[in-house]
Write a protein that binds this DNA or RNA. Sequence first.
DNA 1: CTTGACGGGTGTACGGCGTACACCTACCGT
DNA 2: ACGGTAGGTGTACGCCGTACACCCGTCAAG
Lengths: 232, 232
Amino acid sequence: MVAITTQADAAQPRAPLSRGRVLSTAVALADEGGVEALSMRRIAQALGVVPMALYKHVANKNELLDGMIDVLVGEIDPPARDTGWQTAVRLRVLSARRMLLRHPWASEVIEARTKARATPTPAVMAYLDSMIGIFRAGGFSLDLVHHAMHVMGSRLLGFSQELFQDSPGGEPDPDAPPPEEMAARYPHITELAMAVAHDEGSVVGSGCDDQFEFEFALDLTLDGLERLRGTA
Amino acid sequence: MVAITTQADAAQPRAPLSRGRVLSTAVALADEGGVEALSMRRIAQALGVVPMALYKHVANKNELLDGMIDVLVGEIDPPARDTGWQTAVRLRVLSARRMLLRHPWASEVIEARTKARATPTPAVMAYLDSMIGIFRAGGFSLDLVHHAMHVMGSRLLGFSQELFQDSPGGEPDPDAPPPEEMAARYPHITELAMAVAHDEGSVVGSGCDDQFEFEFALDLTLDGLERLRGTA
DNA sequence: CTTGACGGGTGTACGGCGTACACCTACCGT
DNA sequence: ACGGTAGGTGTACGCCGTACACCCGTCAAG
């Protein structure tokens, strides 16, 4: 058996590797397994390459995280054309929210990296800029759009924070709190949770439509802004 | 020279160590140096103790972070008595915000830990519970207080997210972006920043009163909720 | 055809991390 | 006097990010 291997031999071992391939592999790895399980070594392994090879395409892990953020922001739909400012903002924010639901680790990473840098990632900057553009095109004064950006705050990138999600999602909670103790300690939460569970049909399932809640909050904010816009 | 040392010898080397001392030392270390520089080994060093000693008082690093969160939540003022729901919520949220400004790493840690657990930290649960209590005492229906908690969203714990802070705060940004390129790439941001800088006096200083922006957004949300409350 | 630069993958190594596990020691109630 | 227990110690393991030297294929200039 001849040992000489031509470059057409067998299946070609691996694609040439590039910044784009590194970033999308990193995003995929973070999607499954969370961002805390993301390491340079694991990314390299997933790409069939030695860890140090990555450093020819990203400067270091922080810069890699920045690159991942840009990939995510790139998934947000561009602004709608030929609509009012309100539906344009609405559609954009809802698109951002869909992105965040696809990548649950995103908001944490964006927040952490934005705080560590002097300025947000260029892609985030562009996103914010175009959002301001929508408000301006809708007739908002500079002052009012300034306020509006602050009011939208976390919602601008679709964060809902979901401080208490009824559906577990996290670790199965080793020390499960007995429901009756729950009720004693947090009467209001329990009362609310019971009410939510009992109407809207089945007791199983969260009974809390996160999507509706998000849009309710968003529309309340938007209506308030529209009212201000009319009076200013 | 006799080698025997009594326990009253010299200055007593160190205090007895306790969960409370571990947590407050960890909080202090995070305040100066950020949460990414917080390690079990550093906490131990600051306490004059070997790293493994900490594990007699906290189960592991995640549980330590949870404990730190509880310390922070304990810094939030209790609800005001003898006021309307609106000022009670307002004061409480503003108190939470002051806590977050004291500990800039807090929101990131709370978000990360809340996502990793099935349920928020007990202290956070209690905070949310008492917040619901304020709404309920103010005459909100269960449905409406449910919506309200979602609307308040991140603001409930005082997050403003500050996606673009005019004052740097982070690393000095090694590759400084030239302002004219800034203006070309992000025209709306620049236009807004210029407007904000030019009125309200001096060009130095951010010209953007974060506190005012936060309260403006908060009051807009609260007024919207009050309006809904009247019609429902 | 030789050569030298260079882009990109490799191998080794270092210091720091969280923490499992065995140990030692002072104090306590019996 | 003595066994238990609470709390501090020492050692060690496996993972992490990444600095640094290397090596090899391609390609342009001589």
